[in-house]
Simulated scan of single mutants.
Amino acid sequence: MSLEIAREIQFTFDANDPGALATFWAEALGYQIQPPPAGFDSWEQALTAWGVPPERHNSASAVVDPKGAGPRLFFQQVPEGKSGKNRVHLDVRAAPGLSGDERMAALEAEAARLVTHGATRLERHEPKPPNAGHIVMADPEGNEFCLD
């Protein structure tokens, strides 16, 4: 008998500004910035105590699902910018259980909300059976994702 083990996963994003991108995705997903380790009141306090120079304090950030159900998103600073289309993207389920005009109206409302937080709307795909329609967006650093 084989024992199957489900693996915990995290999604890692290369970023120019990990703190800002983490803040965007926390807003988009209803996540929170990962709290600092026990014994520290802030990440700045922890990083300073560990000897990380102030200019490196924004080299990484992470967001977590406050309910503990979703995967962790980790943002790491890299020197280069985004150079092409994502090969993997997130689908943000913004209209579960809705269909037709009601679904697309909910997706439009979420797209408008995320634009106020730095997202860019790229294109709308109309519902065509068996697909339900979606909106393609980009986060503040150009990473594509779908409102589905």
Rank of each mutant, 00 (worst) to 15 (best):
39 G>D: 05
118 G>W: 02
146 C>S: 02
74 F>A: 14
119 A>T: 06
112 A>R: 13
134 H>T: 07
33 I>Q: 10
141 E>L: 00
44 E>I: 08
66 P>I: 11
72 R>H: 12
110 E>S: 05
49 A>H: 09
68 G>H: 05
62 A>M: 10
42 S>H: 02
73 L>M: 14
22 A>S: 14
84 G>K: 05
106 A>E: 10
12 T>P: 01
68 G>L: 07
121 R>M: 06
63 V>G: 05
40 F>L: 07
67 K>E: 15
39 G>M: 02
98 L>P: 06
4 E>Y: 05
101 D>G: 06
87 R>V: 11
111 A>W: 01
42 S>C: 06
144 E>C: 06
44 E>N: 13
106 A>R: 08
115 V>T: 08
122 L>C: 04
46 A>H: 11
104 M>P: 14
120 T>E: 12
121 R>S: 04
34 Q>W: 03
138 A>F: 01
129 P>T: 09
47 L>E: 08
25 W>V: 12
18 P>L: 02
31 Y>H: 12
94 A>V: 09
118 G>H: 03
94 A>L: 04
77 Q>G: 10
41 D>Y: 00
46 A>W: 08
42 S>W: 03
68 G>T: 07
15 A>H: 00
115 V>A: 08
12 T>E: 15
62 A>G: 13
61 S>D: 15
5 I>F: 09
29 L>H: 08
52 V>W: 01
125 H>T: 14
119 A>P: 10
94 A>M: 05
119 A>E: 06
45 Q>V: 02
83 S>A: 13
138 A>E: 14
37 P>I: 03
8 E>C: 08
22 A>F: 07
96 P>N: 05
39 G>K: 03
101 D>L: 06
67 K>H: 14
51 G>S: 02
23 T>Q: 08
17 D>T: 14
68 G>S: 07
52 V>C: 09
13 F>S: 04
131 N>H: 14
9 I>H: 13
138 A>P: 03
99 S>Q: 12
36 P>R: 01
45 Q>K: 12
141 E>T: 00
97 G>H: 04
59 S>F: 13
122 L>I: 13
54 P>I: 06
111 A>H: 01
131 N>D: 14
125 H>M: 07
48 T>K: 08
141 E>F: 00
45 Q>I: 01
11 F>T: 15
81 G>N: 09
18 P>Y: 01
101 D>W: 00
73 L>H: 09
7 R>T: 13
43 W>L: 11
97 G>W: 04
70 G>H: 05
76 Q>W: 03
83 S>M: 03
49 A>Y: 02
89 H>N: 12
123 E>S: 15
68 G>I: 04
69 A>V: 11
3 L>T: 13
70 G>D: 11
133 G>K: 06
69 A>N: 07
93 R>G: 06
123 E>A: 15
72 R>Y: 10
31 Y>F: 15
8 E>M: 09
82 K>Q: 00
125 H>N: 12
92 V>S: 10
89 H>T: 04
81 G>P: 03
17 D>C: 05
16 N>K: 11
85 K>C: 02
147 L>H: 13
47 L>A: 14
51 G>Y: 03
124 R>I: 12
111 A>M: 10
1 M>Q: 07
129 P>F: 05
35 P>H: 04
127 P>I: 03
10 Q>F: 07
122 L>N: 07
140 P>A: 06
109 A>R: 09
16 N>G: 15
89 H>W: 04
20 A>R: 12
124 R>A: 14
11 F>N: 08
146 C>P: 04
46 A>G: 01
28 A>W: 04
37 P>G: 09
11 F>M: 13
78 V>Y: 05
